[in-house]
Write a protein that binds this DNA or RNA. Structure first.
Lengths: 114, 114
DNA sequence: TCGACACTTAAGTCGTCGCTTGACTTTTGA
DNA sequence: TCAAAAGTCAAGCGACGACTTAAGTGTCGA
């Protein structure tokens, strides 16, 4: 795996490891929200929420734009996609390995002698 | 979401947040390995490796069995599947929301008056 | 039988993380 | 014009996490 891919995985999975950050993602899948709204949802300070948002943006799980004095946040599927891709690669690689192993075993039972 | 699902997500994403634990997973997708082999791969103590393995097993990302004095570890796809499912749910929910929003906007442009 | 091997467990260290408070900037509306 | 609203930044605190070392436990082979 390339180094920048590994770093991306690091950022994304670290971001997803926190329940409050996942709650932000779940909320944003149902539509945009402001920083204050997210803070109220989580039950933490606005300052704390901003820190979570920085992590989420660095991992491309959330985008946001500020108009006037209010910042509106929305989902960025890039992070979700890259995490999903990482997991799918591991899982399918494993399953294909099992298939190949199964094929080898089948051959062995059909042709016991070499 | 059910509570035990949330706890499972917590465990799995926390497990995946560590680069060494992901390295273990990547290694095990290519076949089983012993604790010592994984320790050598990571470049950390066997004791430290055991701690990682506990986390990975609690999140159903790895299974292991001990025969004699050697413990053999292999992938458990249950954890991978549940993490993948969580991400896919968020992403598709968001994409469907965008579709519905697009449909509404199309209707509005077709029928400007109400 | 006994020493080396493979792992396990406990305890301790050090850094990072999540959160708060408090001071600040910018924008808004009356 | 000015106070309240919305967010930003920095410092600090307590808890947790990833290591280590050190002292076990059980297993294998000679």
């Amino acid at each position: 795996m390339l180094k920048h891919e590994a770093e991306a995985a690091d950022r994304v999975f670290h971001a997803l490891a926190d329940a409050n950050r996942r709650a932000v993602i779940e909320r944003l899948t149902r539509g945009p929200a402001t920083v204050s709204e997210l803070a109220a949802l989580l039950g933490v300070t606005v300052a704390g929420t901003v820190q979570h948002l920085r992590v989420l943006q660095d991992s491309e799980l959330v985008r946001s734009e500020k108009v006037g004095r209010v910042r509106t946040c929305r989902i960025d599927t890039a992070g979700l996609r890259s995490a999903e891709a990482w997991l799918r690669r591991r899982r399918t690689e494993w399953e294909h390995r099992l298939d190949r192993l199964g094929a080898v075993l089948d051959d062995q039972t059909k042709e016991p002698g070499s």
